[in-house]
Amino acid sequence: MMHLHHLSVRRGRRVVLDGIDLTLKAGEFVGLLGSNGAGKTTLLRAALGLLPAEGQSSLATLPIAQRARAAAFLPQTRDIAWPMPVEDVVRLGRVAQGPDAAIVEQALAALDLTTLRHRPATQLSGGEQARVLIARALAQDTPLLLADEPIAGLDPAAQIGVMRVFARLATTGRTVVASLHDPGLAARHCTRLILMKAGRIHADGPPMQVLTPDNLAQVFGIRAHVTEGPHGPIYQALDLAPPKGD
């Protein structure tokens, strides 16, 4: 679905993304974790060719029209500038692929927007607008979906709902990569976690292998309890990690 080789981004003398090697396979739901400034957004945007970068990205080399049919991108910014009906905003996701009323309906239903379809999107709450833009990305119906903090600002039920939608997409053979700030939700729903630190991949693998006490201390500076429960991994942050040497 996507292959990155030595992908790097520099801003002046500062290296923001440092030699990323990464391959995504069909059917994966990948959670991209890391503290603020770790390089998660830069990685997603550079992979899509939206930032000047060194190295190689299999997506960035595609012509723009072909890239739009290969990958949908949900950025952090959630601006809806025009008072268009919700249904019309979601339908914009079909621009690259061509009209498909059934897929638009599926996207509206997946994000629980059917009853809001005729409301001007600018009159919705921030969380509702976020769901509209997620639905628009779903309507693009691409093999790969890259989402930058898609559940930020959503209430707990909506967060779980979106994560379930992404997990279901992965079971159909599509690939989802989402940058997240909640290790607990990531552990429960993702098939693979990538933990970033200072522009590099610090750990990559199944959730329980990535969310180790040592990794959580090194990347987030915290102590946390992570265990396998009857319904999947359970994560609870406990405290700040003690300074090294203590």
Rank of each mutant, 00 (worst) to 15 (best):
A107Q: 02
G98E: 09
V104S: 08
A81T: 08
G49E: 08
A102H: 12
A60S: 08
Q56A: 12
I64L: 15
L145V: 09
Q129C: 10
A53C: 03
E54D: 15
M84H: 02
D148G: 14
P85Y: 05
A70R: 03
L74Q: 09
H118N: 14
P63Y: 07
G49H: 02
V132T: 14
L108C: 14
R119Q: 13
R94L: 13
V89P: 10
A107H: 05
A72Y: 01
L145H: 10
V104Y: 13
P120F: 14
R131I: 07
D112R: 11
A96D: 05
G49S: 10
E105T: 05
P143Q: 11
P99E: 15
Q66C: 09
L92G: 00
W82N: 00
L113C: 03
A121K: 04
R67E: 01
A152C: 06
L50Q: 13
P52I: 05
V95W: 04
L74K: 03
A139L: 09
P99I: 04
D112L: 14
T122H: 13
A65W: 07
H118M: 11
P150L: 03
A147M: 03
A102D: 11
E54F: 08
T142R: 04
Q97Y: 07
G127H: 11
A96W: 07
T61A: 12
L108G: 13
L144R: 09
G98H: 00
A53R: 05
L92Y: 10
A81V: 09
Q106G: 08
L144V: 12
E54V: 05
A139M: 01
L154V: 13
S125F: 06
D141M: 00
A139Q: 08
A139R: 04
R94C: 11
A53N: 11
T77N: 02
Q106W: 05
L154C: 07
L124Q: 15
S125K: 09
L92D: 12
R78A: 15
M84S: 04
R136Q: 07
F73K: 07
L92R: 06
A53P: 13
G127C: 07
M84C: 07
D79K: 06
L74S: 00
A96M: 00
H118T: 13
A101Y: 01
T142D: 01
P120N: 14
R94A: 12
G126F: 10
P75L: 02
E149D: 13
G98W: 01
S57H: 03
L59I: 04
D88Y: 07
